[in-house]
Design a protein around this nucleic acid. Structure first.
Length: 254
DNA sequence: TTCCGGCCGG
DNA sequence: CCGGCGGGAA
């Protein structure tokens, strides 16, 4: 069989899924802080249950740094109950705000102005923030160019022979970042389908995307992988015959 | 019963 | 490396 490098495989996955499904509008949230809260709440938890908690927080008007700073742990627990592990997660959200206050005077702007690598280490030092949560915050709340590795990424990569099943997080992350950085036309796929019309009516959003095209590619790739994982690459069973990536698995004459 | 966009402590 | 955390939906 023809030997294809992992980098080429990953690039192929990106272009096939992007072509099949287009933009993902991934990580729905109204603010950066909302992204951060969601990153905590969705740990080993279905997004469905997180949405209920987010609605509760929004209705209680505490979905902000201020709000989480001032709310009691008991009431916070009650509001996020649906997301599971609610006692741990309530404490950890309070701990994040304490960290933000202590190190950045409560300013997300100051926090995200930090260099990516330093901020990543700081986030990882927080109790309740592992690599996936840290990278989700960096990428989706801060537009820092890091690729988020999750269970879907591992599963899909293992099944496609890109990774051994014992590959450590950092190895996967650097592999995906390398693969998606190297191929220049990947960003063109994102850009072409996003800003087809010039002079859009949402300039703030566009300038952000334009400032960090690499982050946009990482963002899209993660969203596409999650879609594939939810629809086809299920945990117990994979429906490769229906999946847009099916052809990659079949030994072809190439 | 299983599964979910993990992480921590022993 | 392993158990615990935990509610909601399929």
């Amino acid at each position: 069989m023809s030997k294809v490098s992992s980098e080429e495989n990953i690039a192929a996955i990106y272009s096939m899924l992007a072509r099949a499904w287009g933009r993902q509008h991934w990580w729905p949230a109204r603010s950066r802080f909302e992204v951060i809260v969601g990153a905590y709440l969705t740990q080993n938890t279905s997004w469905r249950n997180v949405e209920i908690a987010m609605r509760n927080l929004h209705a209680a008007r505490v979905l902000s740094v201020e709000g989480i700073r001032n709310i009691s742990v008991g009431r916070l627990e009650r509001l996020i109950r649906s997301s599971g592990y609610f006692r741990q997660k309530a404490r950890k959200l309070k701990m994040f705000v304490r960290f933000l206050d202590r190190c950045y005077g409560g300013s997300l702007n100051k926090m995200f102005a930090q260099p990516t690598a330093e901020l990543r280490e700081q986030l990882l030092s927080l109790n309740g923030v592992g690599p996936e949560t840290a990278d989700s915050i960096l990428l989706y709340a801060g537009q820092h160019p890091v690729f988020v590795v999750d269970a879907y990424t591992r599963r899909l990569s293992i099944r496609h022979g890109i990774l051994p099943d014992n590959a450590p997080y950092e190895e996967i992350r650097s592999l995906f970042e390398r693969s998606l950085t190297r191929v220049p036309e990947l960003s063109a796929i994102v850009v072409s389908s996003s800003s087809a019309g010039k002079a859009s009516h949402s300039p703030s959003r566009m300038s952000l995307a334009a400032r960090s095209p690499l982050a946009q590619v990482f963002n899209e790739m993660h969203g596409l992988i999650v879609s594939a994982g939810k629809q086809y690459c299920l945990k117990s069973k994979a429906h490769c015959d229906q999946c847009p990536l099916g052809p990659l698995l079949r030994p072809s004459s190439g």
